[in-house]
């Protein structure tokens, strides 16, 4: 039971310019919060500060109401899953999982019971006596998770734990993690640069760029209501089309500099009279099975369209239409403005 509150956090390495400036963030109790952003945006640094592996330059970190600033990482009641797993190579799987409990002087019988419980949950009981180097990537990942879970922490911190796995395994463990979060009913904080991971697992997404929170909301809201051009362009495959509003055939709100719309909202036929319309040249068509992605050029701007049929094969010059309700408007500062 822990919410995490970051207040006015600054972080700078040495005398360099700060990587994080005046960050305020509240991570809700029992949420699956994903810190999402491009590499170098400070998301890992934030996670490491929550863990206490790195000290903030200034500001306060609270777990519930308790100030954690001077609490060393081992006393914070957290578990950390590292990107490269960081398993102890000279110990067996059992040794790895037990290590934290032994250091906490937990009675032997309880250690055995807890190890058995997590191992059967994660399906790694048969590898208990193997060394990490004799395990596959997915198995190592599970051992790393087991080592974290066995401590029964209030907060799970995970730093890109799936990035070393192949695509198929990543999908599988993603599903497992969602189930695990439901089962354990604790706070998960998860760092990734992969928006698909964020969208699929999170209850809350914190989108970061250059050490600043760009948007914090549920995945659905993040997708439907981007608060700025950065959010709009970071989420979605392909991302939201954002084009300069000068090309618009319709009236836009005052101060609007950019118009955005999702590729799946693009239509080839006009539906209403006040539909947004842009004419462009089709550059390529990718048939992906259930959907078709069409790439088109309008001047020097690239526009994507997603059609959920394989029959859609436009060619040459085309008019793309978007319903007004599906448009987002952004001002010169790339912030969202509403009609």
């Amino acid at each position: 039971m822990s919410s995490i509150i970051l207040q006015n956090i600054d972080k700078a390495y040495g005398k360099n310019a700060p990587v994080i400036e005046n960050l305020n963030l509240e991570i809700k109790d029992k949420s699956f919060t994903v810190l999402l952003g491009p590499s170098g945006c400070g998301k890992s640094t934030i996670l490491r500060m929550i863990a206490g592996l790195e000290a903030q330059t200034s500001g306060t970190i609270l777990f519930d109401d308790e100030d954690m600033t001077n609490v060393p990482p081992e006393n914070r009641d957290i578990a950390f899953v590292f990107q490269n797993y960081a398993l102890y190579p000279t110990m067996t799987v059992r040794g790895n999982i037990e290590f934290g409990l032994k250091n906490r002087k937990i009675p032997k019988a309880e250690i055995a019971a807890r190890v058995e419980e997590v191992c059967s949950l994660l399906d790694i009981s048969e590898y208990l006596n193997r060394k990490p180097q004799n395990l596959s990537g997915g198995q190592r990942q599970r051992v790393a998770l087991a080592r974290a879970m066995v401590k029964k922490p209030d907060i799970f911190l995970m730093d890109e734990p799936l990035s070393n796995l192949d695509a198929k395994l990543r999908n599988q463990i993603r599903t497992d993690l969602i189930a695990l979060h439901k089962r354990l009913n604790t706070t998960f904080v998860y760092v990734t640069h992969d928006q698909v991971e964020a969208m699929s697992m999170a209850t809350d997404i914190v989108l970061l760029n250059k050490g600043k929170v760009m948007q914090m909301s549920s995945p659905a809201e993040m997708y439907k209501q981007p608060r700025n051009v950065f959010s709009a362009k970071f989420i979605g495959t392909p991302a939201m089309n954002v084009i300069s509003s000068g090309k618009s055939n319709i009236s836009v709100p005052q101060g609007c500099a950019y118009v955005g719309f999702r590729p799946e909202n693009v239509m080839l036929e006009k539906k209403n009279n006040d539909d947004f319309c842009i004419s462009c040249d089709v550059a390529s068509t990718e048939m992906l099975g259930a959907e078709t992605v069409i790439k088109a050029l309008s001047g020097d701007e690239i526009i994507f369209m997603r059609a959920f049929t394989s029959a859609c094969r436009p060619e040459g010059r085309q008019n793309f239409y978007v319903e007004r309700a599906n448009l987002c408007y952004f001002n010169e500062q790339e912030e969202r403005i509403y009609e």
């Binding site: 592996l53 990482p73 081992e74 590292f82 960081a86 290590f99 934290g100 250091n103 080592r147």
Partner: peptide, 17 residues
Amino acid sequence: PEEILEAARLDKASEFT
């Protein structure tokens, strides 16, 4: 790797351990 030592520290291992 630094991560292994950090993991050990989080596992409450003393310097000597």
